[in-house]
Amino acid sequence: DVEPGKFYKGVVTRIEKYGAFINLNEQVRGLLRPRDMISLRLENLNVGDEIIVQAIDVRPEKREIDFKYIP
């Protein structure tokens, strides 16, 4: 289970104008929005990159997770 405030290693699987989709595993995916990136820009991410993200909002009923990147 993903818990708000905890850090997780994930893989960038898709990049859109509104953010990057990060997979923690095959069943768990969330969104990293540009506003939640500190010292990292969306255009510097590539599909396949491994990054450490912090879960900031977890909505299991909608199967949605918002992430934050903190270097």
Score class of each variant (00 low, 15 high):
32 L>D: 01
39 S>T: 11
63 R>F: 12
56 I>Q: 07
40 L>F: 05
36 D>A: 05
34 P>M: 08
40 L>H: 06
62 K>I: 10
47 V>P: 06
32 L>E: 01
69 Y>C: 04
5 G>P: 03
68 K>T: 08
49 D>V: 06
8 Y>D: 00
8 Y>E: 00
5 G>S: 06
55 A>L: 06
45 L>Q: 00
62 K>W: 08
19 G>S: 02
25 N>E: 07
37 M>Y: 02
37 M>R: 01
37 M>E: 03
18 Y>V: 07
9 K>P: 07
15 I>W: 02
14 R>I: 07
7 F>C: 10
47 V>I: 14
29 R>V: 13
31 L>I: 11
66 D>W: 08
6 K>L: 11
58 V>N: 06
57 D>K: 14
60 P>H: 10
9 K>H: 13
7 F>N: 07
59 R>A: 04
32 L>H: 01
38 I>P: 09
63 R>M: 13
16 E>L: 12
30 G>C: 04
50 E>F: 15
12 V>E: 00
12 V>G: 00
36 D>Y: 08
13 T>E: 08
13 T>A: 10
45 L>W: 02
31 L>Y: 04
45 L>M: 09
60 P>I: 11
65 I>M: 05
14 R>G: 09
67 F>N: 01
25 N>T: 12
31 L>Q: 03
13 T>I: 09
48 G>I: 01
13 T>Q: 07
65 I>S: 03
29 R>D: 07
33 R>F: 03
19 G>K: 03
64 E>L: 14
45 L>G: 00
49 D>Y: 07
37 M>W: 02
13 T>L: 05
24 L>D: 00
68 K>R: 15
36 D>L: 04
45 L>Y: 01
36 D>C: 07
4 P>D: 06
10 G>V: 05
4 P>I: 15
54 Q>Y: 12
6 K>N: 11
49 D>H: 04
32 L>F: 02
1 D>N: 14
41 R>H: 13
4 P>E: 11
49 D>G: 04
3 E>A: 12
36 D>H: 13
7 F>L: 09
35 R>P: 06
6 K>G: 10
35 R>K: 14
35 R>F: 07
4 P>W: 08
59 R>H: 09
42 L>C: 03
8 Y>G: 00
50 E>H: 15
43 E>M: 09
14 R>Y: 07
17 K>I: 13
60 P>M: 10
5 G>T: 04
17 K>W: 15
68 K>V: 09
4 P>M: 13
21 F>S: 03
39 S>V: 09
43 E>W: 10
70 I>A: 11
43 E>N: 11
10 G>R: 00
1 D>I: 15
55 A>V: 15
13 T>M: 09
69 Y>D: 03
40 L>E: 06
24 L>Q: 00
61 E>N: 13
46 N>H: 15
16 E>W: 10
9 K>N: 08
50 E>Y: 15
37 M>I: 06
62 K>D: 09
18 Y>T: 05
55 A>F: 04
52 I>Q: 06
6 K>T: 07
13 T>V: 11
38 I>S: 12
11 V>E: 06
67 F>V: 04
16 E>Q: 08
4 P>V: 15
69 Y>A: 05
38 I>M: 12
27 Q>E: 12
54 Q>L: 15
11 V>M: 11
61 E>Q: 12
42 L>S: 03
8 Y>I: 02
2 V>Q: 03
34 P>G: 09
